[in-house]
């Protein structure tokens, strides 16, 4: 008994009377997508996604309500990046969230392209490099007016605001409910992305045209799946893209798939949805 008391005394002497409110934690972090067989838009367009790869990371969990430049000191972080197949609802462990226990009220993350103070142009991290320098690559088919429209979009989502240099591009908005007292009993954090939310405001009908040659019309028109070549308002030739296994895109004619280009309305729609639309779901201690 005396020996025991002696060791207790020595331990106290050596380490002091520790009663800290913060403990170091390393929480496994899982990411997963959402199994999305078909996305039905408001205009009855049905979208089937075949690929929705997202470069994700790094991630910071902050003590303050406002992330961003008020999160110079994060409580927890995952300083890495990974490509997530957001169509796969199977959780995938990607690393450990490191930091200390305590209350977290906000989060922020980048999508594989990270702005740093040291350079004007953001860095392309490994995950984005896997996606050829993009943050998000989506491939799928949209069924618009019974016409199947294969499409693809590749986006590089990066901080472009001069005043936000060095700050992650995506952060929790004030209206998002997010509050967690991280403690030593916590087992993991799972972040779930739902790609369907990115597509909700897309309007594919703009790509399916029913046009005919007329005075002043373009030389290349689409009428459904028919590709029309016009000259002086007269149709010169036509062909059915579907016979070629293609789709007809206005101004492009028969193409294998729709490539949603930057600065297009569809591109902006997806970009805005990813950056400031419905947020991923943060779940603690999921089995």
């Amino acid at each position: 008994m005396k020996t025991k008391l002696f060791y207790i005394f020595v331990s106290i002497m050596y380490l002091g009377c520790e009663h800290s409110t913060q403990e170091a934690v390393n929480l496994p972090i899982f990411v997963k997508g959402t199994n999305t067989p078909q996305i039905l838009l408001g205009d009855n367009t049905a979208i089937t996604l075949e690929r929705a790869d997202l470069a994700f990371g790094p991630l910071y969990l902050c003590a303050g309500v406002n992330a961003g430049d008020l999160c110079d000191v994060a409580r927890l972080e995952w300083p890495d990046s990974v490509v997530i197949n957001t169509l796969n609802s199977q959780a995938q462990e990607v690393g450990e969230l490191q930091g200390v226990t305590g209350l977290v009220l906000s989060w922020m993350y980048d999508l594989g392209i990270s702005s740093q103070l040291t350079r004007n142009e953001p860095f392309i991290l490994s995950a984005a490099q896997e996606l050829d320098g993009y943050s998000l690559v989506i491939e799928g088919k949209a069924l618009v007016s019974d016409i199947e429209l294969p499409f693809t979009v590749s986006m590089g989502l990066k901080q472009s605001d001069d005043t936000e240099l060095g700050v992650p591009i995506i952060r929790k908005s004030l209206s998002d409910p997010f509050q967690k007292e991280v403690n030593l009993n916590d087992q993991n954090l799972t972040i779930q992305f739902d790609p369907s939310t990115w597509m909700q405001k897309l309007d594919f009908s703009q790509y399916i045209k029913h046009e005919n040659c007329s005075e002043g019309s373009l030389e290349l028109l689409c009428n459904g799946t028919q590709e029309l070549h016009c000259a002086h308002g007269e149709k010169i030739s036509e062909r059915n893209c579907s016979d070629l296994g293609q789709v007809c895109i206005s101004e492009q004619g028969c193409v294998d798939q729709l490539i949603i280009k930057e600065n297009s309305e569809a591109y902006r729609s997806i970009r805005n949805s990813v950056i400031s639309g419905i947020r991923p779901k943060f779940t603690w201690n999921q089995d």
Binding site: P79, P122, F123
Partner: peptide, 13 residues
């Protein structure tokens, strides 16, 4: 942040 060229800034102490 002592790795200005790796693109990832650690924010935890």
């Amino acid at each position: 942040d002592w790795t200005p060229n790796d693109g990832i800034r650690s924010r935890t102490p």
